[in-house]
Structure formats: structure tokens, C-alpha cells
Design a protein around this nucleic acid. Structure first.
Lengths: 148, 148
DNA sequence: GGTCCTTTTGCCACTTTATGGGAAAACGTG
DNA sequence: CACGTTTTCCCATAAAGTGGCAAAAGGACC
């Protein structure tokens, strides 16, 4: 389970399938037939996709919370209710559930964004805006720092 | 892993590949088949290229940050989403991903700038401007300092 | 100035990846 | 139980990426 790097854009086909970038598949190929978990992210307009073995930690965190508290209920929602398992098919594709696709405004193309342990799924235009905002912030810091 | 010195200019081929200067390869040749990590720099209009073993420290820094904070998300973007691993091929070349090349305005030629532990990749004209601006800044400091 | 060696770079061939479409299987409904 | 719909699997083609050879360019050293 190597880290996931980079951003990649692939096309949704008529059946709602899309190829997972080869570099992501290769990074995880030491666990064959691995299940993935797709869920909405805390970041608006994107989904998170986790390998099931890594996702186990979230489940344990939820179970450690005291029952029937607002935090526990909220975490149960995030970790279970809105999350769905998915498999990578023999051609390296996943199908994105229609309700989640709609939630983040997916249309023809899908942008995959590597985040180390997991990846994000975005509409390409929104992904670009998200990444650009971070870069702009970093450049601002780099330019301002020496003169201060 | 000796330090990288100097600046060198090489040409991109039709497929986005370019020879890494021999002096850089030689400086790193004690780690055979080393993976490199290419990412946008905090300095606008250039890329940074790090040896994977050195890059490990950045990954650990990210993982030490609390999840879902603005800092963590920004660092995940810098360290993973915009970074890509690259290998030096048997001819001593690396291929620069199209999106990163576009980001810094690369065209036919690539300028490699040694920075000790890592090197930068620039469009030659911009590299020249960057180095010149830095020298001017240093001269200014050298002249002003004694009079203060 | 000429020869040899290293480095760079163009080009071709091959492998891998992405994607469209068709057939079979599973599912749900009336 | 039969039908239509949806999902999954598999094949085939297209596109992209990777590796390798070999010629050209550049330097070093006689």
C-alpha cells in the first residue's frame, strides 16, 4: 500500500463506470481484490475513496465513542450511512453510485486526486479550483516570508 | 547523495522527456534505481525534484498533522496531490507530466537548477530572471548592511 | 587538429492503460 | 414465472507511456 500521488482525469462511460488511474491501482496491488469505501468528504463537492483495510480505523474510532451522543451519531452517519463499498472490476474500473455522483456534480469526466492514504473524486473544474487555491496560498507565503 | 550544483539546460523531446544532467545523476548514483518526486514549488513558475528517500520527511510531517484541518488539507495537496513519482530511465531521462509542464510554462527547453538536496526545473528564461533577481537582492543586502 | 569517450536526443517498437460495446448474469416487478 | 431493467464481465480497439537502439553533439586529451 504505497502512497497515492498526482491528479488524473478519466471519463465516465454510459454505465457510470470510470477507470481508476493505473498508478493508484499499482500502489495498492499488494492487496489483491481489495474493497474500497466511497464516501462524501468533509471538503465540499468531493468524495473520498479509502482502501477497506485502512478504513477499519474509522470504524474503531466510532465504536470508541459513547453511545447516543451527538458526536457518536454524527460519526456513525459519516462513517457508515453515507459510505458505500465498491470493487475494482477486471478492467480496473469502479462504478460510482448515482446518488454520490450527483451530490458532487459529476458529469462526463472524473478527476482523481491522490492524497497519500486515500484519493478524492471531483468534477474536474472543481478539482482545479481546489488545487489552485492551495497553490496560491503557498506562493503568497513564499513570496512574503523573505521580505518580512 | 552528494549535493547538486550549477544550472544546466536540456531539450524536451516530443513525448515530454528530458535528460537529467549527468552531474546530478552522478551525485545521486550511490542509490541505484532511485525514484524521484516532482512537485510544484512554493516559488512560482518552477518545479522541485526530490530524491524519494529525502521526500519521506515531508510525508511524515503531513501525517503528524490533525485530520481535516486547513493545514493538513493544504499539506496533503502539496505533498501528494500535486506531486508525482518519476524514474530516471536507462538513458538518464525523466518524463515531466504534461500538467506540471504546463503549470510552469515549459516549452522546448528545460533549465535544471541545483539546490543542494534537490533541484528545480524552470523554463530557461524564467530561471535566468529568478537567478538574476536573487543576485540583485544579495548585492543590495551586501551594500546596505555595513551602513546600517 | 584529430581521436576517443560521454552525454544528449531523435526515432521506432513494444507494453500498458483507457474506453466503447456486446453478451451473460442478476435483480426487481407485475 | 416471464419480462424488462440494471449490473457485471469480457473482448476489441484506440491511445498513451515506456524502453531501447543508435546517431548526433559536445568535451577532454593527446
Amino acid at each position: 500500500m504505497k502512497d497515492l500521488f498526482g491528479t488524473h482525469e478519466n471519463k465516465l462511460d454510459a454505465k457510470g463506470r470510470v477507470s481508476v488511474p493505473a498508478s493508484f491501482r499499482n500502489a495498492w496491488k499488494d492487496v489483491p481484490e481489495m474493497t474500497l469505501i466511497i464516501r462524501p468528504s468533509a471538503v465540499p463537492d468531493c468524495l473520498e475513496v479509502w482502501p477497506e483495510p485502512t478504513y477499519e480505523q474509522f470504524r474503531q474510532e466510532v465504536r470508541a465513542l459513547p453511545k447516543n451522543t451527538p458526536e457518536r451519531l454524527a460519526q456513525e452517519t459519516i462513517v457508515f450511512s453515507q459510505a458505500v463499498p465498491a470493487e475494482i472490476d477486471p478492467q480496473g474500473r469502479i462504478s460510482i453510485p448515482a446518488d454520490l455522483a450527483e451530490e458532487i456534480g459529476l458529469s462526463a469526466s472524473v478527476c482523481f486526486v491522490g492524497r497519500g492514504d486515500y484519493f478524492q473524486i471531483w468534477d474536474p473544474a472543481k478539482a482545479k479550483a481546489f488545487l489552485k487555491a492551495t497553490r496560491a496560498h503557498i506562493h503568497k507565503v513564499a513570496i512574503e516570508a523573505p521580505s518580512s
